[in-house]
Design a protein around this nucleic acid. Structure first.
Length: 338
DNA sequence: AATTGGTTCAACCGCGCTCAC
DNA sequence: TGTGAGCGCGGTTGAACCAAT
């Protein structure tokens, strides 16, 4: 049995709101408030609308002090920074931008900001690929194989990875992996600077661990950090997007087909994903964002990194890494069979 | 001028969460 | 403690608009 509908679908109007409907709703709410019950509100004021529709119209359009369009560069930066940290939690992001609605930010991100970032990335990757590799990729038999590497991943997975690293570069502008550090360096607020500082210090610790155990099979105790290392490596290594040789072990002196991927990634992904939980201290900076907003607390930050949570964001590094590996593994297995 | 393809954004949908009973 | 109504959120849709051909 499905959920009972919130209203009588047959008797409610759908589609764009008329000026008269807007005026009716606005006048009532300004005078009496919502009364704490959106479902009952439209009947009270004689609107043939679903209560949810009224709520949405009020919150996204009629509410006082709503801003539409004209996002500033500073707002862009805040959206990017928060998206890196928390993903598509539009309501939380909107809470940090007075006058902006979650719907507006979501639309702005999906239609403009994301494309702006990806556009830059794709262009620079095309150039990097030509200038860095300087040769066609080889398959396991040492033959030229244009379908190898990149095409083993779906374009969707590639796009998510590209975006993630592009955002990482924005967040970590002095990274040595950033080819052009000054090209997109917006002025950052003190809060953003502190967020970056905190995340950089976490990444530095991961880098130290990274240098220790790629030359041999990791010991069980080292695997505790293994997943972190893979994530850190992925997010910091621009080349992984341009040429998946890194994923395949070439840059570590391991040829594709040697078993590196199957063994190490399997360990990293299937056995050790539970250690990726930041401490409260690591997220002190976020506490500053909680200017009385009940929406921001450490609980949702922790959930973001809880790989057991069914609600984890599909853009999260764990999922990206996992999907990337799965797609590689599929291509890899097909290569071996053929 | 007509057509086509791409973009934008308001609005809808469905699901998870909260809270009163 | 269980249940259901309402709320809030994120993903998706589709009409309107715009630009290119």
């Amino acid at each position: 049995m499905g959920r009972a509908p919130c209203c009588d679908k047959a008797n409610v109007k759908k589609g764009p709101w008329s000026p008269e409907e807007d005026a009716t709703l606005k006048a009532y709410i300004e005078k009496y408030g919502t009364g704490g019950n959106w479902i009952a509100l439209p009947q009270k004021i004689g609107l043939k609308r679903c209560g949810k529709s009224c709520r949405l119209r009020w919150l996204n359009y009629l509410r006082p002090n709503i801003k539409h369009g004209g996002f500033t560069e500073e707002e862009d930066n805040i959206i990017c920074s928060l998206y890196i940290s928390i993903g598509s939690r539009w309501s939380i992001i909107a809470a940090q931008l007075p006058g902006r609605t979650d719907n507006d930010i979501k639309n702005y991100w999906n239609t403009r900001l994301k494309k702006k970032l990806l556009g830059k990335r794709k262009q620079s990757n095309m150039i990097s690929r030509l200038s860095i590799t300087g040769q066609e990729p080889k398959n396991v038999n040492g033959e030229d194989d244009n379908n190898y590497n990149l095409q083993n991943m779906s374009s969707a997975a590639m796009e998510r990875l590209q975006l993630h690293v592009q955002l990482q570069n924005l967040q970590n502008p002095f990274s040595t992996y950033n080819n052009n550090p000054s090209s997109h360096l917006p002025k950052l607020s003190p809060l953003q600077q502190k967020m970056i500082q905190t995340l950089n210090s976490i990444n530095e610790n991961e880098n130290i661990l990274m240098q220790q155990n790629y030359s041999s099979t990791p010991a069980p105790s080292d695997l505790e950090q293994g997943y972190d290392q893979a994530l850190s490596s992925l997010m910091k290594t621009d080349e992984v997007l341009v040429n998946s040789d890194v994923i395949m072990g070439k840059n570590r002196g391991v040829e594709p087909g040697s078993g590196f991927i199957e063994e190490e990634f399997d360990d990293l992904i299937n056995n050790k994903t539970s250690g990726f939980l930041p401490t409260e201290a690591e997220f002190d900076c976020f506490k500053e964002m909680d200017h009385g907003s009940k929406n921001i607390n450490l609980a949702w930050l922790s959930n973001e990194f809880d790989t057991n949570s069914g609600s984890s964001n599909s853009w999260g590094p764990e999922n990206m890494l996992h999907q990337m590996y799965q797609e590689y593994a599929t291509g890899y297995s097909m290569q071996r069979q053929s």
